[in-house]
Design a protein around this nucleic acid. Structure first.
Lengths: 135, 135
DNA sequence: AAATACCCTAGTAAATTAATAGACTTTATT
DNA sequence: AATAAAGTCTATTAATTTACTAGGGTATTT
């Protein structure tokens, strides 16, 4: 299950991409239009900025804006920033791998083999969908 | 991410299926062989029993045993019992559906459309894998 | 100088996770 | 009948995560 944070982040970015243009968009505007707590959204957008997806401008006329074009932002990349691993188990995660502690040998573990299949089929979808597909 | 509970449950059932036979298997045996806290495993196996996957026998010579044959138990069904929804959002879950509260119209929601795709590709794997495939 | 809008630190209530403790019940064996 | 084995039930708990909220700080524009 995706957390609200991830869901909100995806909705906020979709809103921004839909709107297009290069002018900064207010947190409060996104917050109102997408029914997201403004303070919570601040945290989310800041995180997306630190990850290199958004730029920001302070002061009057300020706000957040997309840095890359929506076609170049995959949903998989966004979920990894906001949520963390996409895989169902840490021991089969590509970007957040952690060793399995109760499992003597990951190579021969039938559960990990299955979860690799699940991961790959999920990535097949998420790596090929971009922000542009959500608009 | 799957919880430890789900992971332990899958490993325990895999152990049982691998062992085969009809004799009851001790909680403590599974607990030791699979490195799972015995008390935690008690809870898990009881839940699987209440869900109709396991039978149990009390007293000396007792334990847990599989009720159905491993080929007839899909991994999807087990995850639904132990973990809950397989979908990434409640509003696209087949078995644990919940209405989206911040979304005015689910029909036209691009995010939900994407998450339906993810769900279906995950289910394509999990509905077609059984306990027998894990042995 | 004043207003605007993002930035930063801190805290917190609620829920979930991953157990643990201990008494109770049922069953097989001696 | 006594005993030991083995699952069952109730309760509790520590740690973590989630989903926020409060309030002030800083940069920018007018």
């Amino acid at each position: 299950m995706l957390s609200k944070k991830t869901k909100y982040g995806l909705k906020a970015l979709t809103y921004m991409a839909k709107k297009g243009g290069n002018e900064p968009i207010l947190i409060s505007e996104i917050s109102e239009k997408e029914n997201i707590s403004k303070k919570f959204l601040e945290i989310i957008l800041l995180q997306l900025k630190n990850a290199g997806f958004l730029g920001s401008k302070k002061g009057k006329g300020g706000g957040y804006y997309l840095i890359k074009s929506p076609e170049k932002i995959t949903v998989a990349a966004l979920i990894r920033i906001l949520e963390g691993p996409i895989a169902m188990l840490p021991c089969v995660s590509l970007n957040f791998y952690e060793k399995c502690d109760d499992c003597p040998d990951e190579e021969t573990c039938s559960l990990s083999r299955l979860m690799i299949e699940v991961r790959d089929s999920t990535l097949q979808v998420l790596e090929n969908k971009t922000l542009a597909d959500l608009t």
